[in-house]
Design a protein around this nucleic acid. Sequence first.
RNA 1: GACCCGUUCGUCUAGUGGUUAGGACACCGGGUUUUCAUCCCGGCAACAGGGGUUCGAUCCCCCUACGGGUCGCCA
Length: 438
Amino acid sequence: MPSSTRVRFAPSPTGYLHVGGARTALFNWLYARHTGGTLVLRVEDTDAARNTAEANEAIFEGLRWLEIDWDEGPDVGGDFSPYRQSERREIYDRYFSRLEEKGCLYEDEGAMRFRMPNQPVEIDDLVCGEVRFEDRQDPDMTIRRADGSYIFHFVSVVDDIEMQISHVIRGEDHLSNTPKHIDLYRAFDAAPPRFAHIPLILNQDGSKMSKRDQGASMQEYIDGGYDPDAVRNYLLLLGWNPGDDREKFRREEMIELFDLGKVNRSHARFDLEKCLWMNQQYLLKMPTPKFVKTAVVYLEKTGLSLEHVSRPLEVIELFQEKIHRLAELPEMLGPFLQDEVEVDPQALEKVRSREGAGDLLTALNAAFESMDAWDPESLETALKATADEAGVKPGALMFPLRFAASGRPHGPDLYPMLALLGKDTVIKRIKVTISLLS
RNA sequence: GACCCGUUCGUCUAGUGGUUAGGACACCGGGUUUUCAUCCCGGCAACAGGGGUUCGAUCCCCCUACGGGUCGCCA
């Protein structure tokens, strides 16, 4: 049974999709799906001077990336078409006339203004509860510019009436605007929808998150090689929780559990660390073939070529449990991509400070040179035997060896890494390191 | 300035008129992986302040402080 719930996400295409906007879209989408209702995507492009086609595309791309799908919108149509405000001129004119006939408007320097009744208004907000505006002092609001184009507050209300929106779920920054909107509904003799004002997302320091701030643009997540499932999950937790300790939710699970009544009332600070952790968790649990495939697509997009890497898929697989996001991959792939190893100076010092590291590497080199098989198991056996002979613990060999093979203190599991690097490369690099140490 | 919203560990948050105020991230310590950025275990750490109401308040009410939002011919 389809419900009559109709919600909308109404972005203005003036830039990329903001993380706050993405979460607003997410909550709208979840509510629509949870209730079996309809999600409308409406493009609020009434300010021609500020809107661009690129921004429009970026917003669509961001939503699709998060797998937020809509039922009605500029690209898919619907019963209340068109869904771009720039194409709804006649509708606004019609509503405008109604206000004009009722004597609600007057002209001011060519623009048209709506006389604010400034009567008390009470909102029963689904998130904030009952909010009363008693002592209102709003100035008359402009609803049409001198050039004939309409202003946000007006078109937003008209469209919500026309598109039969039942629930307006939007950022809390609109809570203070709501009385003005209610005045318009009253002027049109229309019943206002239910409102749900969701808290904002702030920066680490509590300031308002804006354009340049880290994590603000959805593009950062796309470019950074995040898993959309992880980002969606993290965003969901910024302002909503199921009331218990669970915090990882599959897409279907979110839909089932989501409820506006459980949305928080206070603002949340954005924590990139936790977002990265969430992403790492998702990468870790991803089926390996999917991880590899996703990584390959990502690397191709960044223009990094694995042409000269033998067994590239196995190499990528090595890093699944080591990275937080795919953007870390190009850097980490270094030892596989370049002939010469880039030496981490601190790691070099650490190896230097270990007594006998050079001798151990020499012994290791000899052992490796005589090996026929070159697989993780054989390598492990050879290393342990060498350690035994030298009277040291295997651990004493592993760090110098890792450093020799990759130039770095960290990396994937040692033996599989050596195996994939290949015998020639590893031996060559051990020799270089020995000379570096002497 | 006026109006509106908010305030539990550093961060995201759970929670109830009586709890050792719980979980997660981060951080610190230990263990495993005889490497490591994974993993496991442990630890640190919070009810903004002041008045009420009450036998009893983190929870209910008021005030203050602080934070955020709105007051555009931006959305």
